[in-house]
Design a protein around this nucleic acid. Structure first.
Length: 589
RNA sequence: GGGGCCGUAGCUCAAUUGGUUAGAGUACCGGACUGUCGAUCCGGGGGUUGCGGGUUCAAGUCCCGUCGGCCUCGCCA
């Protein structure tokens, strides 16, 4: 080893020790006499002092050091004078008096410095990712990520799970997300697809009798990106045989507790709370509620059904509802201009308007308050549990519009009004999802989770009569309003599978063409089984307090799915295309 | 595919209503300085205002297009 210690470990206890450190020059301060260097590695920062009297040759070289040069320093650990301790770094009690210095490598002047106070734009950071990754916040996220996967591996190993790899080159199954395709050289005109998830493989592993499977699995989806979505991402993928829903929830409860413990968070009380889909949709308007704060949705339809305000009355007459929420003590904080902005905000979700009332002098204050008689106003105040200074918002529409709009508004207000501690963690289950959702555009049923999800047994007869009422044996793990895991008990009975496919508009021939290999496998002794996948990247975000998925992935892609460091994707040689039997047909212009 | 924000020195930003030679901090280069830790002080170099076009006596500023980055709706079983 070129070093005896790291830059993060020396303390008072090492006083007098001869050490050799390696690292990057984070900063240097040349006093003409003494030269100070802040030496950084993965573990921390240590101050090195070069003295012209004791080691003039070494000192002369030290004066030439520049940012991000890589050096090896030998010297003795000394205590700093008490008034020169640096409380900002872990090694601030000591410094290393250098008696030898070797420049291991020089650096071009970096385009930005990892210690900079003003971060450069993300484009530059992504191009020089290796410099950005020297910053503690990104380094810490990768460390936390490692701890999480390590905790998961330990946990699964203790519980008898096998880590099994599944193919990256698989068969395209056209539903779900868009596939990333890989052309086959030896099968002209045929393509592999990168896995959107190992879903079908893991079910087949259960048919094979492997019983308990897990994998830290890379998944690929060619869809538009978001702050929390990358084209390739990682799932902690799990499947178990001979289990019922509660068995999965229980095993994942334990995993969550272990992961939180591994990163130094306090253990959640188990079992994690479980809420039905119907309940959270009614109370929060979303299937991934952030329960770190209240501000629940309230239905005032019955109060305003006969009011003078046409928008409310007409909405209710045509089968919609008027629902809203109470932003506590926000009446003064939100000006008309900001409320107009909130109106545009809910408009993004299709809401045609946002009614608001300030609660003032025991009544409602608003441009539309005149449409509500005093009795109605009092009823609204009572129902909304409103106090003077509160600000009430309402959206009148069918639930399909008002729920997402109000849920987004609730999240935004909760954050802006600081209704919760951002360091809190709130983890919960949502269960009893509907098996199908009605696709209005295409006039048909879609699988809410995926087509292999088992119905609640007592609901199976409803498949024939009322598909929309059939509940699924599926479950989502929700953390701080973020979908952090999703799974289900699978269909292991070909007959039930056939009925579900039929409802989804997939006839036998079509099913055979798309999933024949799975259906065939299910006919050879498939055990009852089920599983779940946790979004690793999102867990790292949540536990790091970061809001951007790029910050928890070593080499992420931009919103247009490009890697600015390597230049991927890129055109390829004509010869490569010929070998793959591919002719590129670019759109004109 | 739609909506929004952004692009000026290596970097972070400024530049009045369209008006002088596009500035500051930092980084970089040279010099001074023996206890700094966002060191300090003195001096210096550094610009295709993303790119292309247009309007104008005059464009960093206005208009059109385009490229790139971010946020977001749709999309993501």
């Amino acid at each position: 080893m070129l070093r005896t210690h790291t830059c993060g470990e020396l303390t008072r206890d090492h006083e007098g020790t001869a050490v050799t450190l390696c690292g990057w020059v984070q900063n240097w301060r040349d006093h003409g006499g003494l030269v100070f260097v802040d030496l950084r590695d993965r573990y921390g920062i240590t101050q090195v002092v070069f003295n012209p009297q004791s080691h003039p040759d070494v000192h002369a070289v030290a004066r030439t050091l520049r940012s991000e040069w890589v050096i090896q320093v030998s010297g003795r650990v000394v205590l700093r004078p008490s008034d020169m301790v640096n409380p900002n770094i872990a090694t601030g009690d000591i410094e290393v008096r250098a008696d030898a210095l070797k420049i291991l490598n020089r650096s071009k002047t970096p385009p930005f410095e990892p210690s900079a106070f003003d971060l450069p734009n993300e484009e530059l950071r992504l191009k020089y990712r290796y410099i950005d990754l020297r910053r503690p916040v990104l380094r810490d996220a990768l460390v936390l990520r490692h701890k999480l996967t390590q905790a998961a591996r330990n946990y699964f190993d203790r519980h008898g799970f096998l880590e099994i790899e599944t193919p990256m080159l698989g068969r395209s199954t056209p539903e779900g997300a868009r596939d990333y395709l890989v052309p086959s050289r030896v099968h002209p005109g045929s393509f592999y697809a990168l896995p959107q998830s190992p879903q079908l493989y893991k079910q087949i592993l259960m048919v094979a009798g492997l019983d308990r499977y897990y994998q830290i699995a890379r998944c690929f989806r060619d869809e538009d990106l978001r702050a929390d979505r990358q084209p390739e991402f990682t799932q902690i993928d799990v499947e178990m045989s001979f289990v019922e829903r509660d068995d999965i929830l229980q095993i994942i409860d334990g995993l969550v507790a272990e992961m939180l413990e591994a990163v130094g968070r306090s253990a959640p009380s188990l079992p994690l709370p479980r809420y039905s889909y119907a309940e959270v949709m009614e109370r929060f308007g979303t299937d991934k509620p952030d329960m770190r704060f209240g501000m629940e949705l309230v239905d005032i339809s019955s109060i305003v059904a006969n009011c003078e305000f046409g928008v409310f009355r007409n909405t209710i007459e045509s089968g919609g509802r008027v629902r809203g929420l109470n932003a506590p003590q926000a009446a003064e904080k939100y000006s008309r201009r900001i409320i107009d902005e909130l109106t545009r905000f809910v408009g993004d979700f299709g809401a045609k308007g946002l009614a608001f009332f300030r609660v003032k002098d025991g009544a409602l204050d608003s441009p539309i308050a005149k449409f509500f008689d005093s009795e109605t106003q009092q009823a609204i105040i009572r129902t909304m549990d409103a106090r003077p200074g509160d600000l009430l918002f309402f959206v009148a529409d069918k639930d399909a519009v008002s729920s997402p709009a109000l849920a987004a508004l609730r999240n935004r207000l909760g954050r802006e009004l600081q209704l919760y501690d951002p360091n809190d963690l709130n983890v919960l289950w949502v269960i009893d999802f509907p098996l199908f959702g009605w696709n209005e555009d295409e006039r048909r049923w879609d699988a809410e989770h995926h087509p292999f999800c088992f119905p609640v047994v007592e609901d199976i007869p409803l498949l024939e009569t009322d598909p929309g009422a059939v509940r699924a044996q599926s479950y989502d793990l929700v953390c701080n309003g973020c979908e952090a895991g999703s799974g289900s008990i699978r269909i292991h009975d070909p007959e039930v599978q056939g009925k579900v496919f039929a409802l989804l508009g997939i006839d036998a021939a079509e099913a055979e063409r798309r999933f024949g290999f799975l259906l065939e496998a299910l006919r050879y002794g498939a055990p009852p089984h089920g599983g779940i996948a946790l979004g690793l990247d999102r867990w790292v975000m949540l536990l790091s307090g970061l809001t951007n998925i790029r910050d928890v992935i070593a080499f992420p892609k931009t919103q247009r799915a490009a890697d600015l460091m390597t230049g991927a994707p890129s055109p390829v040689d004509e010869r490569q295309l010929r070998e793959l039997h591919i002719r590129v047909d670019l759109p004109a212009d």
